Computed example of a mutant assay.
Amino acid sequence: MANDISPELVAQVRRGATRLARRLRAERPADGLSLNKLAVLSHLHRNGPSTPGEIAVAERQQPQSLTRVIADLEQAGLIIRERDERDRRQSVLSLSPDGLGALAVDASGRDRWLAQALRELNETERQVLRLAATLMEELSEL
C-alpha cells in the first residue's frame, strides 16, 4: 500500500470500527428511528439547516432515496421545511425541537453503554480514544 501503510493496520482499524459500530447499533432502542432518518437528523444537528441535496451528498446517498425519509420526518414534526431565501425553488431543512429530542432518546442507550465501557479504561486509554475518535471523524470526511 502507498506510504507503507500495512495491510494489518488497515484490517485492524476496519475490524475495530466495524465491531464498535455493530455494538453501538445493538444498544439502540428497538423502536428507534431508521438509520436513514437518524442520518438526516444527525446531519442537521451537526451542520445546521441544509437542503435535501446537501444532505444527500454529505450522507453519500441519492437525493431520491431520501425523499420519503424527509417527508416522514417532516410529517412527524422532527424537521422543519422552509423555502430557501436565495433560491425559492429549493427548500431548506432544519431540526425541530422534537427532532433534537428524538436524537437524544436514540443516543441515550448507546451513550450509557459507552460511558460504562469507558470507565473500564484508564485515563491514558481514554485520551488515546479521544484522539482516535477525532481521527475517525476526519477519515469519514475524506
Rank of each mutant, 00 (worst) to 15 (best):
Q90S: 09
P52H: 03
A132W: 12
D84G: 03
P49K: 08
G99I: 03
H43N: 12
D98W: 08
L33A: 03
R25F: 09
R86K: 13
S140I: 07
E137A: 13
E125L: 08
A56V: 03
S65C: 06
A17D: 07
A102R: 04
G48C: 06
I55N: 00
D72E: 15
I5E: 07
I79S: 01
A56I: 05
L139W: 14
L9A: 10
R14C: 12
M136F: 15
E8I: 11
S42M: 09
L135E: 10
S34Q: 05
L20G: 02
D84E: 09
G101L: 06
I5M: 11
A11N: 09
L129E: 00
R25Y: 07
G16A: 15
A107I: 01
L73R: 02
R130P: 06
E120D: 05
S50W: 04
E138Q: 15
A56S: 05
T124P: 01
A117P: 00
G48P: 00
S34I: 07
L121T: 00
R28D: 04
E85M: 12
E82D: 13
L103C: 02
Q64G: 12
D111I: 10
G53I: 11
L38R: 12
A104T: 11
R28I: 05
R68L: 13
R68V: 13
G77H: 07
L121R: 03
N122M: 01
P49R: 10
A30N: 08
R119I: 00
L73T: 01
R14T: 11
L38G: 04
R81S: 11
R126H: 03
S34W: 09
E74T: 04
A117M: 09
A30T: 13
R14M: 14
R89G: 08
D111G: 04
R46V: 10
N3L: 15
R89C: 05
A30L: 08
D72H: 10
L78A: 02
A102D: 01
A2P: 12
G109N: 01
A30H: 07
R83G: 06
R126W: 02
V13N: 06
V105A: 05
S108Q: 08
V128P: 00
Q90D: 10
A17Y: 08
L135A: 13
G101I: 02
G99M: 03
H45R: 15
R83H: 09
A30Q: 09
R23M: 15
L100H: 10
Q116Y: 12
R83W: 06
L41F: 02
E82W: 11
V40R: 02
L142N: 10
S34L: 11
Q61F: 14
E120F: 05
L24C: 06
